[in-house]
């Protein structure tokens, strides 16, 4: 079932387990070398679902660092994106989509499996 239509920001497609964060500053709250969030959750090979980003403009380099160390997420899905994340995703080739409805964000939890196709069709496969 097609659950939501997202806007592709950096094109791509992916299927994977999600890791959900409400507000995220890539700098300070993501360890690129370990591929982990500062609370210890791994984002390597996962779908990173974020409500909104915040914080340092160095964030773009941290996203690049995730790719550099081979720890990048499969893709990033946001309620609302911002240039810091967009630039990081572009230079790292990490698919980025925005427009995730807030009520859907609230329903999702870590471990749910979703897919996003090139056109931005989001499907929940397991939750």
């Amino acid at each position: 079932m097609n659950i939501a239509k997202l806007k592709p920001i950096v094109p791509g497609e992916f299927i994977g387990e999600i890791v959900k964060v409400e507000r995220l500053s890539f700098y300070g709250e993501v360890d690129a070398k370990q591929g982990k969030l500062y609370d210890g959750r791994s984002i390597k090979g996962k779908v990173l679902v974020i409500m909104r980003s915040r914080g340092s403009t160095v964030g773009s380099y941290i996203i690049y660092g995730l790719k550099y160390y081979g720890n990048q997420p499969l893709g990033i899905v946001m309620v609302k994106s911002e240039p810091i994340v967009i630039v990081g995703s572009i230079i790292s080739g990490i698919p980025l989509f925005e427009g995730l409805p807030v009520d859907l964000f609230n329903k999702l939890r870590d471990g749910c499996v979703l897919s996003v196709d090139k056109a931005g069709n989001l499907r929940i496969l397991e939750c």
Partner: peptide, 16 residues
């Protein structure tokens, strides 16, 4: 331009 400290951007930033 931000992202200048080796402590924040490390090897990936340097490579870029």
């Amino acid at each position: 331009i931000s992202g200048v400290s080796y402590g924040t951007i490390g090897e990936p930033g340097l490579a870029f």
